[in-house]
Design a protein around this nucleic acid. Structure first.
Length: 643
RNA sequence: GCUGACGUAGCUCAGUAGGUAGAGCACUUCCUUGGUAAGGAAGAGGUCACCGGUUCAAAUCCGGUCGUCAGCUCCA
């Protein structure tokens, strides 16, 4: 028997018979691995477990514990779901059914509208089919053969997909599983029996190939796991996300509303939400001043000249609101702050000695968003960017980028976001500015991250048309990613507005320009903050920091004294005058997620103390008010986020 | 914007063989003055999102508008 050498991910090499399959390789390691193995990769190409290896190769075996294995598992489950649907709805036509983050989906075309009950039916059928434990068998064929097959089935979507493939470049493959056949690149898990726990989560519309001109299909989302506990944990996480939904908490904690009568996508900040916002903005301003920024205020509308010059009317028109006529001139509501900051720059002639200029503004902008895109505070039509523009010389560029990245990390961490991911987005297809400048700018962005020893991913072609950018995403308490910061080069505006500065040589030069937003928008940031903390804000940003709870009205006078002293110490305090028992009041403030309660009754009046109760923790015993003030003030001052 | 679902008191929700509305919480008043997650009683509160249609009669059926939700698309 001819032998081949297989190299494992850890670098070790083992000898096998030629034609060995990844499954046999797994078996040779342990029966447990063979049982858990889902797919493999041979020389970097993902393969089914029964793929015959005929030459020396690098091999890796994937189980559900690997991202690769998980994807295959979910992908195979989507086939199983399609299978079940075909059994239940023989007329069904199938679109695509990939694995996605957190599960899988399949787009199907059937005449009736599916409901939640139908999902249960499909789920049940899937489990039935899984028990049959049929294998996923691969078959390769030519484009012509594939077309004939699906024409016979009358599946126009698959026909369209196959027509776009080229069988000289890629193998066109089918996978058979029981009596279900699907066009699929693979690989798949060994058999349906591996699929143990399935939950179909939701159903919604989606266009064939994501194009709204195409027919709308029904998309069923689901998730599956090999172990019951995994499914339970996953569902718990979804449950937790629902509990933390900022729209729900926004209502419960009376932070904000969006009102139908007043307009979609427009946020009304209630007093409690406004207090949180005030804290965020106050901190933001102080930190910017400390970091060498100057603050600006600019108007909310501007003449069309501004937007013609900036190019917004050409490139951003679909997001701008219709103009209003003032003295026979067209004025537009601003979708961005940059032209205004540039106007301030142009009001003076600067020397290279004056640069860099770092100008920041909490600038409220309005953008038209499609009604279906609106979502609580996360996607709105009017929002306040924590915007800034940096104008500098070419020589200063690298240092400014580094400085901005540094500052951004500081800001995000200050709010308790410690898990950060960095992305560098490069030149998109339609872009202005020449390649050399783009190259320089991208290098500058990358080296800024590298010098800070920060890992980053490159988002090829993800830059704005006017320049490349660094995006920073955070992971919240539920491990969900949100993009917050963006740091963008701009090769466009300095040119269009003919900006200049006088260099050392006495001649005019074009300044470099960087746009940046660190928190993104205050509305969106607030929404994310609410979800991250599940409404239990750190004391320094909590709308109410302390609630004073008198045991009965006999102690109102003492309670008022306490309240006044806390107010004098700049602590946000409320006194509960309600004619209720302590238990009732404690429950009320606890559900309002107030960090501290001070219970005062006869004992406290006599001893001159307060009884402290901490949110989520409970009774902390009694102490002198001064002592409590010291503890809380320190907590606020050092902005403790995680207790 | 598109597809689908939904829109009943401040909030969470009941309410289909079409016969002009109900609960809990919250709110108001009274009783109670009570120690660490809901004391008791009474009361007030809704042109059932809006507009139009079918009908003797519409929260309920039909159409349109607005809005919300899940996605698609897009993004701070």
């Amino acid at each position: 028997m001819e032998k081949i050498n297989l190299t494992f991910p850890d670098g070790s090499v083992k000898e096998f018979n030629k034609g060995v399959t990844p499954f046999q390789v797994a078996e040779s390691i342990s029966s447990r691995l063979a049982g858990d193995a889902l797919i493999s990769s041979v020389n970097g190409v993902q393969r089914d477990l029964y793929y015959a290896i005929n030459e020396d190769s690098k091999i890796a075996i994937y189980t559900f514990n690997n991202k690769e294995g998980q994807e295959a598992y979910w992908h195979s489950t989507s086939h199983l779901m399609a299978h079940a649907i075909q059994v239940l709805y023989p007329e069904a036509k199938f679109g695509v059914g990939p694995a996605v983050e957190g599960g899988f989906y399949y787009d199907i075309d059937i005449n009736e509208t599916l409901t939640e009950t139908d999902l249960e039916k499909i789920e049940k059928k899937m489990m039935e089919l899984a028990e049959a434990n049929s294998g996923y068998e691969r078959q390769e064929l030519t484009q012509k053969e594939a077309l004939e097959l699906f024409e016979k089935k009358g599946d126009q979507y698959k026909i369209e997909l196959i027509s776009d493939l080229d069988d000289k470049e890629v193998a066109i493959s089918l996978y058979h599983e029981g009596d279900f056949t699907d066009l699929c690149r693979g690989p798949h898990i060994p058999g349906t029996g591996r699929i143990k726990y399935v939950k179909l989560l939701s159903i919604s519309g989606s266009y064939w190939r994501g194009d709204e001109k195409n027919k709308s299909l029904q998309r069923i989302y689901g998730v599956s796991f090999p172990k019951k506990k995994m499914l339970e944990e996953h569902l718990e996480l979804l449950e937790e996300a629902k509990k933390r939904d900022h729209r729900k908490l926004g209502k419960e904690l009376d932070l904000f509303t969006v009102q139908e009568e007043a307009g979609a996508g427009l946020i009304y900040w209630h007093p409690k939400g406004a207090r949180v916002r005030h804290e965020i903005e106050d901190f933001w301003r102080k930190e910017h001043l400390r970091s060498g920024y100057e603050l600006l205020y600019t108007p909310h509308i501007g003449k069309s000249w501004l937007w013609e010059t900036s190019g917004h009317l050409v490139n951003f028109a679909e997001n701008m609101y219709a103009p209003m006529q003032i003295d026979d001139q067209n004025y537009y509501l601003k979708p961005m702050n940059c032209p205004f900051h540039i106007m301030i720059y142009k009001a003076n002639l600067y020397s290279y000695r004056d640069l860099p200029k770092r100008w920041a503004e909490l600038g409220t902008v309005y953008r038209y968003e499609k009604s279906g895109a609106l979502h609580g505070m996360l996607r709105v039509r009017g929002f306040t960017q924590d915007d800034a523009h940096i104008f500098c010389t070419a020589e200063q560029m690298d240092a400014e980028i580094k400085r901005t990245v540094h500052f951004s990390i500081h800001m995000l961490k200050s709010f308790g976001f410690d898990d950060l991911k960095f992305y560098v987005a490069t030149r998109p297809d339609k872009a202005i500015g020449d390649d050399v400048v783009w190259e320089q700018a991208v290098t500058s962005l990358k080296s800024a991250l590298e010098s800070e020893k920060l890992d980053y991913e490159v988002d090829e072609g993800g830059g704005a048309f006017y320049g490349p950018k660094i995006d920073i995403k955070i992971k919240d308490a539920l491990k969900r990613e949100w993009q917050l910061s963006t740091i963008q080069f701009d090769f466009n505006l300095p040119e269009r507005f003919d900006m200049k500065y006088i260099g050392e040589d006495g001649k005019e030069h074009r300044p470099y320009m960087v746009h940046r937003a660190l928190l993104g928008s205050i509305e969106r940031f607030m929404g994310i903050l609410v979800e991250h903390y599940g409404g239990s804000f750190p004391t320094w940003i909590a709308p109410v920091q302390v609630a004073v709870v008198p045991v009965s009205e006999k102690y109102f006078e003492y309670a008022e004294k306490i309240k006044d002293e806390l107010l004098a110490d700049d602590i946000r305090v409320e006194l509960d005058y309600r004619n209720e028992k302590v238990g009732y009041k404690i429950r009320a403030w606890e559900t309002q997620k107030v960090p501290y309660m001070l219970i005062v009754g006869e004992k406290e009046v006599e001893a001159g103390t307060v009884s402290v109760r901490e949110h989520k923790v409970g009774d902390k015993g009694s102490m002198k008010l001064e002592e409590f003030v010291k503890i809380v003030s320190e907590e606020i001052k050092s902005r403790v986020n995680n207790k």
